[in-house]
Structure formats: structure tokens, C-alpha cells
Amino acid sequence: MLVTEILSSLLLIAGAIFFLAGTVGLLRFPDVYTRLHALTKADNVGLGLVVAGLVLQAESWTVAGKLLLIWLLVLLASASIAHLVAKAARKKGIELWK
């Protein structure tokens, strides 16, 4: 019991670090395209780790299923939205940062 709790906490903390990395990237990266990189990839891993940490604590299969469903939906949404934002930026003629 204790092992899963420790593992779960470690996963949650790791997840939070990735969210922080995504935010730092959002602030530090120079243009819209590079910021999208930071958001999609770091937040995907961050949420994945948080979900994994919570699944370890889940009381039942349905709760674990719900968490997994949330992760998949966010994955789908963030990948699609990143593509749409990048496409809109290209259409608007925003140049790449060199």
C-alpha cells in the first residue's frame, strides 16, 4: 500500500514539473510555433503522469477508466488545436523565428 502511495506521489510531482516546463516554454520560446511545441508535448506528458499517479490511487476500474478517457480526450484536443493554431498562423503569414 505504501509503495503505491509513494509511487503515486512521485508521478504527480513529475507531472507538475512537466506542466511547469510547458509554462516556462510558453513564456521563453520566441514565436507562436515554438510555443505550441512546448504546450502540446510538455502538457501531454504532464497530464499523462498526473493521470498515471491518480490511477494508482483509484478506488475502482471505472474511476481509472474515467481518468484514462480524460487523458485521451485532452490528447486529441490539444494535438488538433495546436495544428489549427499553427495553420491559422501560417495563413496569417507569421514568419518563423530564426
Partner: peptide, 12 residues
């Protein structure tokens, strides 16, 4: 609107 948005809406 492009295939990505179209597919997203069809899935969601």
C-alpha cells in the same frame, strides 16, 4: 475548415 477540424468534430 480542413480535415483536422472536421475529423475532430466527427470524433467528439
Amino acid at each position: 475548415p480542413g480535415p483536422v477540424l472536421s475529423t475532430l468534430s466527427r470524433l467528439l
